[in-house]
Design a binder for these strands. Structure first.
Lengths: 261, 261
DNA sequence: AAGTGGTCTAGACCACTTG
DNA sequence: AAGTGGTCTAGACCACTTG
């Protein structure tokens, strides 16, 4: 199925190295031959070898650790469960369910919190029913486990709703922002989840220390009150090499099924 | 926040073009300046300009349409609802819920089906409780809308379970493979969903006509019978530029919540 | 001090569209 | 026929680790 021996030289070099990685000859973390070695092996100039390396780096298979060389990427994914937010009450609400699960596994969590007033990004404005000229309060968090960033969690609230509340202070909210919203008369009973898969923006890449060839999942949650008013949009950015998104389903009974139709 | 004017020349050229794209000066589908034009604009060689272009291509912002030039990528995402598989009975089960929704919007669906006997990939073997030396039946489908591929759907079944059944024929199963499994005494009542975000393999890229800078979501479903036996693993590969994954939640009542704890 | 990958120049030939 | 991006050569200097 896969065409071998075809195409430009740099593709054939990339194919050769990729095969050696997938066969296990070059395992996770293994050092690849140096660019110098590859130029003599394949009888091409360094530019051509570098083009082959770029292919593998952009596939997320290889990382460059300058000036030590190129290495096979090692991936370890932690399980992220979007359903759990409302299922179980987290022991540390502000750290939330994801971090909570990791703490139990003995990892050390930490986070940074910043609060800003800003114009809403287009996707947020659309979901909160705001104009681009309105103002939103944004709580921006970066969450770390054992010192490495795992995801960002940016919550957007309409200014008029949270004005003067605890949500505007850049500190941990012990009982959680959702509880504060409820106290402000905006209890959420319903949420819409969306996941968008793309390459990170340069800002996201630097905030999350994301290398080349690693995409992100943007998990967006819009929370609604009982009467259908959107009161909160959260954007979680999850680097693809660090997360496995998981959820569960039970088959509805025949009766439920018929109800839905 | 974003460091400007820093770093290598090609990064500054990429930053400049990215800013023009994000400001809307270069809108979706717009043609970028030619490499030739950029060499004179920035006073560098073509290799440096090409390095800048590569950055934008790998971010998924720009596509090369040789030999017409480079263009700002246009994205249109269709909504994929993993929850719906069991919620509503699709009008065309084999095309499934996702396609069904698009047909209602006037799009023309089509698909290819191939059936293979193979050793299970590691992730499938682990989930079906099989050894690498066992054999699985794989139904491989590519689904198209208006002629462009939208996703692949590969279903893995233990050979001993589906041996001789309709599942082994490379044709549409009117009532759906899940129904056939139920008739074979393996009705599924529970499923685990996992989503993995990464760059496509070369095979996936060619099956789905995925360009540079476009990641995929791999949505994996493991279906279990009432007594907890895994009988089916499905791998759906969704190109990030064509899908928005959506699901909904309702907050459990206080009582339900306490039950869970 | 030696070895690594990162950046950049200068130039050549090619394949593929489009006018 | 002209213009575009794709591929490749040959060479230079650099920054950053590690022994």
């Amino acid at each position: 199925m896969t065409s071998r021996g075809a195409g430009p030289i740099y593709q054939r070099i990339a194919d050769d190295l990729r095969a050696r990685i997938q066969s296990g000859e070059l395992g996770a973390g293994a050092k690849l031959p140096t660019e110098q070695a590859l130029t003599t092996d394949f009888g091409v100039t360094r530019a051509t070898v570098r083009q082959a390396m770029q292919v593998l780096v952009n596939e997320g298979l290889v990382v460059s650790e300058r000036p030590r060389g190129h290495f096979v990427r090692q991936i370890e994914r932690l399980t992220y469960r979007p359903q759990k937010e409302w299922r179980d009450r987290p022991a540390h609400p502000e750290l939330d369910q994801f971090m909570d699960e990791q703490v139990e596994l003995g990892r050390k969590p930490s986070q940074t919190i910043a609060v800003e007033l800003a114009a809403p990004p287009t996707d947020v404005a659309a979901r909160l029913g705001l104009a681009g000229t309105d103002t939103v309060v944004v709580r921006k968090r970066v969450r770390y486990l054992d010192g490495t960033p795992f995801n960002t969690n940016d919550s957007y609230f309409p200014l008029e709703l949270v004005q003067g509340s605890e949500i505007m202070h850049p500190a941990d909210i012990g009982r959680g922002a959702n509880q504060v919203l409820a106290e402000l008369g905006a209890e959420q009973t319903h949420a819409v989840d969306e996941i968008e898969v793309r390459m990170p923006t340069p800002d996201e890449a630097s905030r999350l220390e994301i290398g080349l060839g690693v995409p992100v999942a943007m998990h967006r949650v819009t929370g609604y009150t009982d009467d259908g008013r959107p009161v909160r949009v959260v954007r979680n950015v999850l680097p693809g090499d660090r997360h496995l998104i998981a959820f569960e389903r039970t088959r509805p009974t025949k009766t439920e099924k018929d109800d839905k139709q």
